[in-house]
Amino acid sequence: MAKIIVVTSGKGGVGKTTSAAAIATGLALRGNKTVVIDFDVGLRNLDLIMGCERRVVYDLINVIQGEAGLNQALIRDKRTENLHILPASQTRDKEALTPEGVEKVLETLSQEYDFIVCDSPAGIEHGAQLAMYFADEAIVVTNPEVSSVRDSDRILGLLASKTRRAERSEPPVREHLLITRYDPNRVTSGDMLTLEDVREILAINLVGLIPESEAVLRASNQGVPVVHDMDSDAGQAYADTVSRLLGEDVPLRFHEYQKKGLLSRMFGGGRR
């Protein structure tokens, strides 16, 4: 049976899809059979971040409506073994996503995979609720910023009440906090909330901290999940996150303000 992980946030633009792509890739790189599903019907992005947009033929909605088989819609990742992508539809309506259909797809995938990563759309409507409904674990992506923290708080409330586990009174969804776009320099100058502020309000286990990094934008535009770029701080931070998800104890990195040394100032080096 696969473990179903939803990557969600409430607020848009905080890095859900980037994180879903990086974490799914990271899990596959560690030898786990992984599939990542795009639930953002109508605003499909995951295929771009995963660099497989030209290979999309069928999508999740086609499968749910019986127009294609699951194996026809699954796209095998070219770089990583054990990794598949199930894209969303760009043209269909969100309402085409039915709970019964999603349940059937997840059940079938569960037989074959170790991890199912669901990339949730922003918001708290139908699509976002379906993405989280069947989850065993949730990664709540949050930027160190008040509106993002409040929306994450709202999502945590829904995870505790509007999921299958909650409705069946089973053990609750395991919640993980993933802080992205963290810039220690701006935290020090008071522009951003501190790591402690965010943790205190959301009061859930911190699974990772991804620093603001040029590598993320570069990776998105190239269609290569940033976890492949192990020279970058963001790539390493996602790799740490995956380790923690797998139960390893990894110390936190990239959360402290680093003064630029003379050499890096002269040669414009530093954190990429």
Binding site: R150, D151, D153, R154, L156, G157, L158, A160, A203
Partner: peptide
């Protein structure tokens, strides 16, 4: 009157 005890975080929107 009987009151109510709630344990846990009351989150945004709740």
């Amino acid at each position: 009157a009987v009151g109510r005890i709630y344990r846990g975080t009351v989150r945004s929107g709740q």
